[in-house]
């Protein structure tokens, strides 16, 4: 299976573990990820916050390159990039006047295809749980985790049109077929603080703190994410969260592809587990997984 792949800046930067584990898992699933050639940054929070046309144009350039690869689908592991690309496609489809203007701005056609999917969506809808399960060589039994979706994997629902915006289950499904128990918890679709990691750290410590607290209360031993922003906020601010709440959480924050990779027989090191600030090693050792 061939699919266009948009890694985004974080997967080349702080969240390389997400990139490498995604590649390994896709290899095992016979998915050929074809990186969109010479892609540009999606513009993230900064572009859509200050300049709508810029934000759509940055997305349109990527869409156009992907379209020229003659693939009918793009998959985006970063929920933030996914949101921007999907929104760009949505805006171009529903606003022909803007689409015309954007085509002029990028000096190229501004297509609404290929269809943009996030990685969780691509796995559940295109690959299927059965196939995901079929590649498991080591079921990760004993692990009890909270699947954390955050905002942009499923919202805004009229744009994303995938899973439930409030009670999503798709990532839980994936984790369950590789042997993991997922907890029923309250904050799976609440916000971690998004793009304020550096500029308004207090907001992130507050919102991410609520997420961690809720996961802990639900009995989770780890939080599993599908977004580098969620990961950075939770993983790098866990210390600050623990300090502000006066609680020690012991809560590794793991990309879902890292766990898939373990179930598929890849090693701790290959999957970039060492890059996590809050080590997952004690937990994985305790369950006899590594």
């Amino acid at each position: 299976m061939n699919v266009a792949y948009f890694p985004g800046c974080s997967l080349h930067g702080l969240s390389r573990a997400y990139n490498s584990s995604t590649h390994l898992v896709c290899d095992k699933l016979n998915i050929n990820l074809q990186e969109i050639e010479d892609w540009n940054c999606c513009g993230a929070t900064a572009a859509h916050s200050l300049n709508h046309k810029l934000s759509v144009s940055l997305g349109a350039r990527n869409l156009n390159i992907a379209k020229n690869m003659n693939l009918d689908m793009i998959t985006v592991p970063c929920a933030g990039c996914f949101g921007r690309l999907k929104t760009a496609s949505y805006e171009l489809r529903n606003n022909p006047e803007l689409a015309k203007e954007v085509a002029e701005i990028i000096n190229a056609p501004a297509p609404v295809e290929p269809e943009v999917t996030n990685l969780v969506q691509f796995f559940t809808e295109q690959v299927g749980l059965e196939k995901i399960a079929s590649k498991v060589v080591k079921p990760l039994t004993g692990l009890k985790v909270a699947a954390y979706y955050g905002c942009l994997l499923t919202r805004p629902s009229k744009v994303v049109a995938f899973d439930s915006p409030e009670q999503p289950t798709s990532m839980d499904d994936i984790l369950q077929v590789i042997g993991i128990e997922t907890v029923n918890w309250s904050h799976k679709a609440e916000c971690c603080g998004g793009g304020y990691a550096a500029s308004e750290t207090d907001i992130v410590v507050d919102l991410s703190g609520q997420v961690v607290e809720s996961a802990k209360n639900a009995g989770a031993d780890a939080i599993v994410v599908a977004c580098p922003m969620c990961h950075t906020n939770l993983d790098t601010r866990l210390g600050a969260i623990e300090k502000s709440r006066g609680v020690k959480y012991d809560m590794p924050i793991i990309f879902f592809t890292q766990l898939m990779g373990l179930a598929y027989g890849y090693s701790y090191r290959q999957l970039g587990f060492r890059q996590l600030l809050n080590s997952a090693s004690p937990l994985l050792k305790k369950q006899g997984i590594i």
Partner: peptide
Amino acid sequence: SHGEYGYGH
């Protein structure tokens, strides 16, 4: 349909 209220969950 109104997942925010958790009916059924």
